[in-house]
Amino acid sequence: MDYVTVLQEGTVEIFETMVMLPIVLQRVTEHSDSTLTDARVTGMIGFGGTIKGMIGVSATADMAKIVTGSLLGMEIAHLDDDVKDAFGEIANMIAGALKSACGENGIDIDLAIPNSVVGDCLHISGLRGAKRVVLEFSASAGKLWIELKYLEA
């Protein structure tokens, strides 16, 4: 299964339909460790089953506010609870797209529940031995990263 394509298409569809904010894929990096030091917000959700892993959605502060404002239809001034909720929900939706694609390929995964974090100098670690892919998207408001860490059983 081509995870990059699944994540890219799922993310673009969710941003076009639900967030209503067009975003463009800038680059894809596949390596075991990466630092998202510009990210101020991360929504994440774990999944288990034939493949186990974690999906993270991170954004810069301005991007996070614009995305949340557009998704919820409200003005967002600060990185508040609405931003955390929105990023948890976006992570959940992207994981849903991954689950559907896995299902079509005969791979069973179950989703955990989303969590989100807001902070300074956020650094998200991978796991030794796990594969990690990061998709960097951009919009006029800033950058957004979708990352997938996974281990095939």
Binding site: M18, L71, L72, G73, M74, D85, A86, G88, E89
Partner: peptide, 15 residues
């Protein structure tokens, strides 16, 4: 079960 999703649906209805 997601209050965020309820907000998103509310926003979509308005739009």
């Amino acid at each position: 079960d997601s209050s965020t999703m309820r907000k998103i649906i509310g926003r979509s209805l308005r739009q």
